[in-house]
């Protein structure tokens, strides 16, 4: 597999989700707030998942 893709696919995906979440709540209310909460919850869960239950390889 391409090294760049291997290293960066998840960080880039999480960054896009975060940016979407940060902007969504600013642009609209209602469903946009819900979308913002969902997209921002994903990186938060990733932190908790890998922070508390580390994967060894």
């Amino acid at each position: 597999m391409n090294t760049f893709f291997h290293i960066w696919k998840y960080p880039i995906l999480l960054a896009l989700l975060t940016m979407f979440g940060l902007l969504a709540a600013l642009i609209g209310t209602g469903v946009w707030h819900v979308l913002s909460w969902i997209t921002l919850t994903i990186p938060a869960i990733v932190c908790i998942r890998f922070g508390m239950f580390p994967k060894n390889k």
Binding site: I7, K9, Y10, P11, L14, A15, T18, M19, L22, L40, P43, V46, C47, R49, F50, G51, P54, K55, N56, K57
Partner: peptide, 29 residues
């Protein structure tokens, strides 16, 4: 692989990996 934290080698490596993993996940925030 993404999310790797080496917990069995040394405390320093564990915290280095934790630092990198948490840092990269929250970087855009």
């Amino acid at each position: 692989n993404f999310g790797m934290v080496r917990t069995e080698k040394s405390t320093r490596l564990k915290w280095l990996d934790m630092h990198n993993m948490l840092g990269v996940v929250t970087l855009s925030w």
